[in-house]
């Protein structure tokens, strides 16, 4: 009886073992890295909003503190998006004719909500809490970037798990004094205002604030 497979198939069989590994490996790493891409996570992409609210104008131009609008960021998991009433504390008096603000005025008159487009949105299986980060001296800018320079809101970080862990494993690279959490342009300095290294200052603050972030899965996946 003739052989079913020609002699050459041995080589083919050996190569195909390696080939399968290579193909599967490449496939997996493409999948994993796709998840990290700025393209898939919309990092640096300004989102179109129903009202073109500019943090640059309001924070840098007018000098309003984050907490004037994001009222619950210090004591709750949720930072809060301001209701239109907050906008109206000023815009009932100034720029009252601006067509850009018509949705705000209409919402205030009729009571229908403004549908802001979410920019930062963790998967629902992740637990995140603002208050602990604010109290342990992580600045808004560390996670959200130079918000005071954004005409429209965008993300500067992927919010991937590896990003959270990067800091939870080495918080000394990021912590700052509590009073500076809302400062958008903070640089590490000592009491006299001389520049110091972040890691040295961070190590000192970690002792002072008793910082010990957990990397247990159940911290973020409850």
């Amino acid at each position: 009886m003739a052989q079913l497979f020609p002699r050459g198939s041995n080589a083919f069989a050996r190569v195909s073992i390696v080939a399968v590994l290579v193909v599967v490996g490449t496939g997996l790493s493409i999948l994993l890295n796709t998840n990290r891409l700025h393209y898939t996570t919309d990092v640096q992409v300004a989102k179109k909003q129903p009202v073109p609210f500019s943090h640059k104008h309001h924070v840098t131009g007018v000098g309003i503190d984050c907490r004037y609008c994001h009222t619950s960021v210090e004591e709750s998991s949720f930072a809060n998006i301001p209701p239109v009433e907050t906008c109206m504390t000023c815009h009932s008096q100034i720029w009252t004719e601006s067509p850009l603000l018509e949705p705000i005025r209409e919402s205030y008159r009729m009571g229908n909500p403004i549908e802001w487009v979410r920019v930062h949105d963790l998967p629902d299986f992740v637990y995140f809490n603002h208050s602990i980060h604010v109290h342990k001296g992580i600045g808004c800018q560390t996670c959200h970037g130079q918000v005071d320079q954004m005409p429209l809101m965008w993300k500067v970080n992927t919010l991937n798990m590896e990003w959270c862990l990067e800091c939870h494993r080495a918080p000394e690279k990021f912590v700052r004094p509590r009073e500076e959490v809302f400062n958008m342009t903070w640089k590490p300095t000592d009491e006299q205002g001389h520049a110091v290294s972040q890691v040295a200052l961070g190590a000192q603050l970690i002792k002072e604030y008793d910082i010990n972030p957990s990397t247990d899965c159940s911290t973020c996946h409850r």
Partner: peptide, 25 residues
């Protein structure tokens, strides 16, 4: 692609201020 990714991550529970068509407002 970002929305697609996010939609797979959203569960049927509501976060603060999320939209819920069950209520009139």
């Amino acid at each position: 692609i970002e929305r697609l990714r996010q939609e797979m991550y959203n569960q049927s529970r509501f976060e603060p201020l999320e939209k819920n068509t069950f209520f009139a407002d």
